[in-house]
């Protein structure tokens, strides 16, 4: 079984690209930040890998790692799903947040992890995102969020829908404080996350080929006259339609973020 965006890991030395199926030498693949050397397919990263690849070395300090989901509705299988999500991702929730340095600037950062219950947003994800924005507003830190999510977490019912409003409200806090917020859409950025804090960033970047959209492809096709275009709900489609500023290959994300911070923050601000 193969899932989109996941490289085969059946051997220590070799991996197979999930898209073009070509075989890659693992050290080369890792050095290329899990981007296929043949077709350029961006394989998914887990939150910790992303942080390592993005921020200045040894600068990440995790915050709010002590928050845990509960099962407020007694929803079928939720407790089990949480356990499996933790096992699959090695994380306690679908987002890792903290502070870090990037290009010499102190930032608030949040990185979602799709391998924890599809990166879905329940109470803990909502709370951690809000704290990230509030910390940014209080401590005057720019906020950078890497999104990877299928949407709201169904298992928390209406409480998860409210996280859309709660995180949106927190964006307005950061805006009032005049601090920049940059979002990076990675594969996939969908539904309740896309329709709340993700789409409200001052600048939106996306990785090539990432799935970015509101509804599932089948639902979208059913609700439409005619066939959706071939690149429907890709980062490139959203870029064409004005919803994303730039498609940025993984190896250029760090330098692009640094440039944006330089542009938005006062020159004397960087702490080196």
């Amino acid at each position: 079984m193969q899932r989109r965006g996941v490289a085969q890991t059946n051997s220590e030395q070799w991996v197979q690209c999930a898209k073009c199926r070509k075989i890659l030498f693992r050290p080369d693949f890792e050095r290329a930040m899990r981007v296929c050397l043949h077709c350029g397919h961006h394989h998914r990263l887990c939150a910790r890998e992303r942080i390592l690849l993005t921020v200045d070395s040894n600068s990440f300090q995790e915050t709010d790692a002590d928050l845990r989901s509960v099962d407020p509705l007694g929803f079928p299988d939720y407790a089990d799903k949480l356990r499996k999500g933790a096992a699959a991702s090695g994380e306690n929730e679908a987002i890792v947040t903290g502070t870090a340095m990037l290009g010499g600037y102190e930032i608030g950062i949040g990185v979602m992890d799709f391998s924890f219950m599809g990166g879905s947003m329940g109470s803990v994800v909502g709370e951690k995102v809000v704290r990230c924005f509030e910390r940014g507003a209080e401590r005057r830190l720019p906020v950078i969020l890497f999104c990877a999510s299928g949407g709201a977490r169904m298992q928390e019912g209406l409480i998860s829908l409210m996280q859309m409003a709660k995180t949106t409200a927190a964006v307005s806090r950061l805006q009032r404080a005049g601090m920049p917020y940059i979002a990076v859409f990675t594969d996939p950025t969908m539904a309740g996350v896309l329709a709340s804090f993700a789409s409200l960033a001052d600048v939106i970047l996306a990785e090539p080929g990432a799935l970015v959209g509101f509804a599932g492809q089948r639902v979208a096709a059913q609700a439409s006259v005619g066939k959706p275009p071939a690149n429907f709900q890709t980062a490139e489609f959203q870029h064409e339609h004005g919803m994303i500023d730039l498609i940025v290959p993984r190896k250029q994300i760090r330098i692009t973020l640094t440039y944006l911070l330089e542009m938005f923050l006062p020159v004397e601000a960087p702490v080196r």
């Binding site: 789409s199 979208a220 609700a223 439409s224």
Partner: peptide, 27 residues
């Protein structure tokens, strides 16, 4: 029942419109 999920709505930024509508209400 839901916001319109069709191709047309996606092309014009249904997610952004929903997010902005909430943000506008909060302001």
């Amino acid at each position: 029942p839901a916001a319109d999920p069709g191709v047309e709505s996606e092309s014009r930024g249904i997610s952004e419109a929903i997010a902005q509508s909430m943000l506008t209400m909060f302001e």
